[in-house]
Structures are given as C-alpha cells and as structure tokens.
Amino acid sequence: MINSRQQNPLILSIISMLLVTLVTPSKSSHYHLFKRISIELFNSHALAQSLPGDIQYTPPDRGAPGATGSGGARAHEKPTILESEDNWTRTRGTAAPPPASIQTVPKQCIPTTPTLLVPQNHLGLTTSSNPTVLWYLQNKDVEIMVFELRKAGEKEPIYAEQLQPSAGIIEMKLPKDKVELEIGTQYIWSVSVPCITEGKRRKISVEAGIQRVAPPPELTQQLSQATTPQQKARVFAQQGYWYDALDTLSTAFTANPNQSTYGDILSLLDQVGLNEIVKKEGQR
C-alpha cells in the first residue's frame, strides 16, 4: 500500500486501488504533501511474477568524495532504531530530548514500528533539494507519528511535522518553502511512534541518512532521453539515486495506477533487502 490525499478508486483484473488524500497542517499552517495509496491484491502470485522487471538498482560508489557529513559526522548507512523517554510535547525550537540509545524493538512494539524504505546497507542519494521520503507502517493503530529532519551530527531538527498515522506505504514530500538540502551535506530523517513497554510509554524512532549530490552530466543526458516516468526511474536506479528513483515511480503510480509501475516499486524494495515489506504487500 502507498499512502494519498485524493480519492480515486480503480479496479483492474488483478489489483484494486484506492487513492485517498490526507491533508495534515504543519505547526506553521503550511500544507505539505502526505500521500497514501491503498492497494489490495486479489492475486499476489501474479504480482510477484512481475517483480524482476527491467528496473535494476545499482548502489552508488561508497568511496566517492563527501563520505562524511557536516562537522565530520557520518550519516547512517543503514536504518537505525532508537528508544528514548517519551516526549511528545516538544516542538521546533525547543531543547532536544535526552540522547536516545540503539535498541532491539520489543516484540509487542514490532507491529507499530515504522520501516523506512531505504537501502539496508548504504546511504541513499538524491539530486533534489526537497526530496520525497517513504516508509511503511504495518499497523495504523498508533496514537501519533512524528517526522523529523536534521543535519548529520546535530540534535536539533531543521524540520519537524506531526502526521496522522495510517497503515501501508507512506510518502512525504519535503516542503519546498521549508526544506532545501545542501549539496554534499548529509542529513538524518526519522519517523517516531509511541509504544508501551514494561509499563512505560516510550518513543521508538527509526532513522536513516540521505545526501544530496549534484547530478553529473551523464545522468542529465540519460534523463533527457527518457520519455516516460518509468524510464526516468530506471535511469535514476541504474545511476544509484535511490530516493529519486522511488519518488519518480511513486509519483507516476499516483497519476496512473497500474501493475507495471507498482511492480517496479516492489522490485526496488526487494533489491535493497526490504523483502518483508514486499511479502506483506503481496499478501494484501
């Protein structure tokens, strides 16, 4: 399932799709794009057969310049789960909470812990100043969901947003008038939800890194020759731009829901170790 603000039901022979729009105001009364596209598969085996597809993701060269973020801090190369004392009254501009510690998610919290849709063993790249990020929430029965973005090595977020929980694949476009990633600087983005463990209300946060890079001439040339969104997504994937490839496919799917595009999305997820998400989506 991918999450949306418009409602546009469409039934195909194999999949049934429901586009739903959710409008969530930020603390500054800005309305960002928070999308949810719900997809139910009547025949998961048929969709699973479409996963190999033509799209192939090639990880970027990890030895390339700019391997460290601002201040020499290295951004997360894989998703990290943190647990800290619950503090949901915090807003932008206030002091950061106590340092969180890396934890193994308690069994009772697994259904409500988000999964970030990023490569599991390296830092994802983007060419966009305000990229789109996606995550998966298995269970919508959580009280609150909070998104934050900060520079690597810093505690205070440069952007924070409280969102309405909803199950499935959730897509969030960082607002252009609020966020502008700097080229060569690494950032950490996170999604947090509450969970009750050992009688205490804790905040479980899952975070991953992202870095903006300047598009090389070769990428620009190949994109200019691509005539469809899926072709552009394949160029991004082959060149190692994870966030751009996934965003291009998600946007194309929202505009024109079809099995081929959704198959490419699941194929990308499968290639970076998110096979559990693919399995769950295939069972819907």
Rank of each mutant, 00 (worst) to 15 (best):
S128V: 00
L134I: 08
A152G: 03
A167D: 10
S166T: 13
E154N: 01
E148W: 05
S190G: 13
L163T: 07
G153P: 03
F147I: 09
P131T: 04
K173C: 06
W189D: 00
A167L: 11
V179S: 06
V193S: 13
T127Y: 01
Q162K: 15
Q138K: 12
V142R: 14
K176C: 02
G153A: 06
P175D: 11
S190L: 05
K173M: 05
I169K: 05
V142P: 11
Q164E: 08
M172V: 08
A160V: 12
L149Q: 03
V193F: 12
I183L: 03
T132S: 12
L134C: 08
I158L: 14
N130Y: 10
P175F: 10
A167G: 13
N130S: 15
P175A: 14
G153W: 00
Q162R: 15
K155F: 02
A167P: 05
P157A: 07
Q186T: 00
L137R: 02
E156K: 14
A152N: 00
Y136A: 08
N139E: 12
G184K: 13
K140V: 11
A152T: 02
E180A: 10
K151S: 06
K140Y: 11
I188F: 00
W189P: 01
E161S: 12
W135P: 01
V142W: 08
V193H: 13
V146K: 15
K155M: 04
V191W: 09
I158W: 07
L149Y: 04
E180T: 09
E180G: 03
Y136D: 05
S192K: 12
M145K: 15
W189Q: 02
I188W: 00
A160G: 13
N130E: 07
V193T: 15
E148P: 06
S129I: 05
E143H: 15
K173H: 12
T185D: 03
I169P: 01
K173D: 09
V146D: 02
A152P: 01
P165K: 09
C195N: 08
V193R: 12
P194M: 06
I170W: 04
L137D: 00
Q186A: 04
S166Y: 12
Y159G: 06
I169S: 05
L181F: 05
A160D: 08
M145N: 07
I169N: 06
K151P: 01
V133I: 14
S129N: 12
V191N: 04
F147G: 02
E154Y: 01
P157R: 09
I158G: 03
E143M: 14
Y136C: 06
